[in-house]
Design a binder for these strands. Structure first.
Lengths: 195, 195
DNA sequence: CTCATTTGTGAATGTTGATTCAAAAATAGT
DNA sequence: ACTATTTTTGAATCAACATTCACAAATGAG
């Protein structure tokens, strides 16, 4: 037997997030990822099937985390739907707080991955969306949320808005501080721009 | 002298929109674009410098059109800021109504282009953003729009929301009819989800 | 110390597809 | 019908880079 030195699998995926964020998936070179991970090129292929597998694993981890948090939240019976909506927004921002590179990869490469049929897109993404839907539906049922708004549209509306703001934050943390973003998103989502 | 046959320049850029939309920029092959445009591979390089130039020209045309429409709108003195906001949303949706492929390219490749410093990003994009800002600022000044919302954040918020919805529409026109999208976006942007 | 097994390596391979360019085709003027 | 000019062509070129694989290194068991 031989023990693994350190945790190359983790080093590699973390390096890939950094490199994908900096250059974009397509211009990112495996050789660069290996260099950043402090690992030989061949080692990348020991732990991952190929370049796309790296991207896939990044998103799979991300959606799993988000799904689990949303599930916990939507099953909570003490919070009102409006409070849950706020929490969902917080969770989303929180997960990227520690890792701007992950935010950039998330924003830029999500579509890319979805169009490529070679993976059935991570189950966790669908599960995540369902949890979000439950919360909004609960709000409509309890007569707190407007019922002339299509739930599906609302979901994509908020999701797209946050995604775009996250990207701005990742590109320019100074001018888009997360706390201000959160606060504004929560307000706009609930009350809109009209006085 | 020899006259040009038809309008290859236009045929090529239109073909490129179709092909970029179907396969994404990176997997789109010049040979496929030439085939769709009914043109030899070499002709693509007669009219465009390289592959990226095609993408750049697509966006340049798009942002110019949007900028000009927004300019006309923001200079209008008969409409209230709230009406202008509605019109801005309409203009955005309208421009893609005739061309779902353009919507897909717009949504998927915008970032890609912005990260690549080799073009200073089309002047029209910046101009477009400025016009949008003027309208929102007018609403705040006239005490119609909430003043606790950051204008810049609001802009990216709405922009991201629409972008994401457009993509859903482009991928699945049946379940996301444009009229319903417009209506919901206008409502949410102004009043939010709370009853 | 040896051997067997697992882990790690990176030069060499192979494919893919953007780009080039020398030649052909089309047209207009004379 | 001949020439000059412009437009079109696509096979050949070439570079980039993901992936492979034969080998080396490390470790623990006996």
């Amino acid at each position: 037997m031989r023990l693994k030195e350190g945790n190359k699998e983790k080093d590699i995926i973390e390096a890939s997030i950094t490199v994908f964020a900096e250059h974009g998936y397509h211009k990112a070179k495996i050789s660069k990822i290996a260099e950043v991970a402090n690992v030989a090129i061949g080692s990348v292929y020991v732990y991952y099937k190929n370049k796309e597998d790296l991207l896939y694993k990044i998103f799979d981890n991300l959606w799993e985390k988000l799904y689990l948090e949303y599930k916990k939240l939507s099953e909570n019976t003490y919070l009102s739907p409006a409070e849950k909506l706020d929490s969902m927004i917080d969770i989303f921002f929180d997960i990227f707080t520690e890792n701007p590179s992950l935010a950039i990869v998330f924003v830029n490469e999500q579509n890319h991955l979805m169009l490529n049929g070679q993976f059935q897109f991570t189950e966790f993404y669908a599960k995540f969306l369902t949890q979000a839907e439950l919360v909004v539906q609960e709000g409509v049922d309890k007569n707190i949320f407007a019922d002339n708004v299509d739930i599906d549209i609302f979901r994509f509306f908020v999701f797209g808005a946050i995604r775009n703001l996250l990207q701005q934050w990742a590109l320019d943390q100074k001018n888009f501080p997360l706390n201000k973003l959160r606060q504004n998103v929560k307000y706009l989502t609930k009350k809109g721009i009209l006085k």
